[in-house]
Design a protein around this nucleic acid. Structure first.
Length: 671
DNA sequence: ATGTAATCTTTTTTT
DNA sequence: AAGATTACAT
């Protein structure tokens, strides 16, 4: 397929900063992929001087793959195609000295950070989970806004904010002591470093000569700052974005960055991609009408040359159980009529909890499905255990990892010992691991306890030495064997079957680590510390999910659906309070909810279904629900309502699905 | 240690 | 209301 004029222009404009406003389905990835090829093959850029940044590992992976296919593996070698966070990690790794970090620092995931915060705030916040969450968000916002603790303390208003700023400062100090970073640090640290260290900045500007940014509307303040610092005065970059698909402002994304870009770079070239190659005209028309209710800085009008297509259908259901059954029945019917595959269908929803009933209905009807999101592989206890061991081996100062594994399996190191060890470490301002080898510890602990700790410490050091010799595979193999993890699993699991499952997960993890240590034709070999941080970024997990995608109905949140497309799409729970979510209604922020609906609608290629419930249970109470205002905003001529009268058809439908017949009969007899 | 009973929490989106 | 977590009795 040839590029259209706008795409063509976007690919070939390289003499200055370039903003590509890419509507949904307008082929933006194609543009980026082609542009990278053009830069290398025609303009003489070296692959290693080009960086392309995305927001998800999946997108990065896909882009890497497509570039490789387009220009060949060899030519693509050395390209920097990664997420913002991975790029940040790369910079930190190479500049860790300038940042005052020891090599082998740990990467804390959300749970680790929360655990630390909880510990730090026992006095101030006690056990208030909401407050803790609020604190974590506040810290994340500060970091995303490039505000360091000192500054946060100066600008904090009100009692609570002042307290949060103080805790932010304390948190940062502890992270430093642990030699640990959190997700936000991966952006914040490189940005600060490049800001204040001219030499480092120059070096990176030389290294990255052309920068491409995907989903630019999702950048937050520090990410945009990082972009500016990387491109420097020469401003050779292309950013691709769509303000109508900005759905992450709640985590600090600033779609206004699209506007700021024009102010910061007056010579900015603006190119709009307005032809949609994905959806039927009817679907696109509906999406356009809906999103026209939002204010716009840049006007764009998407059009499609595909057929007009089927009407958008609205399915009614009495409650959420029927909603799920209705969707499943429709998929079965539709698949039978159209000879389609299960993989052609996607069911999208606002909140993760909505997946439960859908899953149940799919399962009872033997329909294969795949759920993206949900409980991650890395949330499993056994994976967290081994990961904690690896983190500790790589960075013994990581107290979180230490506490998780020090007595797992049981080594006779109980809570009392650990408390004393912790107090001692605190008083000397050293990590717990370091404290084990401190001579002063003898005054505080019994010889037996010290002996156990010492043995554990030696073991971690020894394993670390094996890894450092470059025998990472041996290190992990011996680790799992030496701690008798398999035995531990069989002892601690509720059944042998569960233990078997867990051990299989461990094997899976082992396989990934080994693969990453060895490298493949797309990725360089890594060292063990690199592997550990990468796995914490969930790189591997998403890669794995891709491989498994068979002929399955896709279930995911609207947020997770961004960037994907499906022939047939169901959006369930099209109700006030759910699709414009109640909290967004309360906060008067329905524009973002409208964009979310817009994202969902524009995922559909051929047919689109909405499902509406008349009532829904919430905290055990049944509440009446109303049709989402977004349905009212759609072009009514393009809608087709099924079951105009829900009550009457509802019983008929129950009969049809063969469910609840007995319940109905019983109800009749009672009357 | 293991299974059952009592109690608690949950429903916004995630790199 | 249901699922998850904790407590308690065995």
């Amino acid at each position: 397929m040839k590029l259209n004029p706008a795409q063509n222009e976007a690919v070939h404009y390289i003499s200055g900063p370039c903003l590509v406003l890419a509507g949904a389905g307008s082929g933006k990835t194609r543009v980026i992929v082609n542009k990278i090829g053009y830069l290398i093959q025609t303009c003489g850029y070296k692959a290693r001087h080009i960086a392309a940044v995305t927001f998800t590992n999946k997108a990065a992976r896909e882009m890497k793959e497509r570039v490789s296919q387009s220009i060949g593996r060899k030519e693509a070698r050395g390209l920097w195609i990664s997420t913002f966070h991975t790029l940040g990690l790369e910079i930190i790794k190479r500049e860790h000295k300038a940042l005052g970090l020891k090599p082998g620092f740990s990467l804390f995931d959300d749970q680790d950070s929360m655990a630390l915060l909880k510990e730090l705030t026992e006095k101030e916040l006690q056990e208030d989970k909401d407050l803790l969450r609020a604190l974590a968000t506040a810290i994340s916002n500060w970091k995303g806004g490039l505000i360091i603790p000192d500054r946060a303390r100066k600008i904090a208003k009100g009692e609570q904010e002042q307290l949060f700023a103080l805790l932010y400062q304390r948190y940062a100090q502890h992270m430093k002591a642990y030699n640990a970073l959190d997700f936000d640090d991966l952006i914040l640290l490189p940005t600060l470093l490049l800001q204040f260290n001219e030499e480092v900045r120059k070096r990176w500007q030389k290294r990255i000569q052309y920068l491409l940014v995907d989903e630019y509307q999702d950048t937050n303040t520090s990410q945009y700052e990082l972009v500016k610092l990387l491109v420097g005065e020469r401003a050779r970059f292309t950013v691709v974005g769509d303000d109508d698909q900005s759905i992450y402002s709640w985590r600090g994304a600033k779609p206004q960055n699209l506007v700021l870009l024009g102010k910061d770079f007056p010579e900015l070239k603006l190119i709009k991609l307005e032809q949609n190659y994905r959806s039927s005209q009817r679907i696109l028309h509906a999406a356009n009408i809906l999103i026209a209710n939002n204010p716009h800085v840049y006007d764009k009008s998407l059009f499609s040359e595909l057929p007009y297509g089927e009407p958008l259908r609205i399915l009614n259901a009495a409650n959420e159980e029927q909603e799920a059954e209705r969707v499943v029945a429709e998929i079965i019917r539709h698949k039978f009529m159209g000879k389609t595959n299960f993989g052609d269908y996607a069911i999208l929803y606002r909140g993760n909890h909505q997946s439960r009933l859908l899953e149940r209905a799919l399962m009872t009807n033997r329909i294969p499905y795949r759920l993206s999101g949900g409980t991650s592989f890395f949330a499993r206890a056994e994976i967290k255990d081994i990961m904690a061991y690896l983190r500790l081996v790589v960075n013994p100062d990581d107290d979180n990892a230490f506490l998780r594994v020090v007595n797992l399996p049981k080594r006779g190191i109980g809570p009392a010992t650990l408390e004393k060890l912790g107090n001692f470490a605190n008083s000397k301002h050293i990590s717990m691991f370091e404290a084990i080898f401190d001579a002063g510890l003898q005054q505080h602990l019994a010889p037996g306890a010290i002996e156990s700790l010492f043995k554990f410490g030696r073991f971690i050091v020894d394993t670390g030495e094996i890894a450092e010799r470059g025998e990472g595979v041996d290190a992990i193999k011996q680790l799992i064997r030496n701690i008798n993890y398999e035995d531990y699993l069989y002892e601690s699991s509720p059944s042998a079957k569960a233990a078997e499952m867990r051990m299989k997960n461990i094997s899976e993890l082992y396989r990934w680590v080994t693969e990453m240590l060895a490298g493949d034709d797309l990725d360089e070999p890594m060292t063990l510390p690199e592997v550990v941080t990468r796995l914490t970024l969930r790189d591997m997990m998403e890669r794995n999910n891709e491989d498994e995608a068979g002929d399955q109905v896709q279930l995911m949140t609207l947020h997770a659906s961004k960037g994907l497309e499906f022939p047939y799409v169901f959006i369930v729970g099209m109700e006030e309070g759910l699709l414009p979510h109640q909290s967004s209604i309360d906060e008067d922020n329905i524009e973002e909810e409208r964009r979310l609906a817009y994202v969902g609608i524009t995922r559909a290629q051929q047919e689109l279904f909405f499902v509406v419930c008349r009532e829904r249970r919430q905290f055990g109470e049944t509440i009446q629900s109303q049709v989402s205002r977004f349905v009212d905003e759609l072009p009514q001529d393009d809608l087709h309502w099924d079951n105009r009268k829900p009550e009457k058809k509802t019983e008929q439908e129950r009969m049809q699905t063969g469910k609840a017949n007995i319940a109905n009969l019983r109800a009749m007899f009672k009357k």
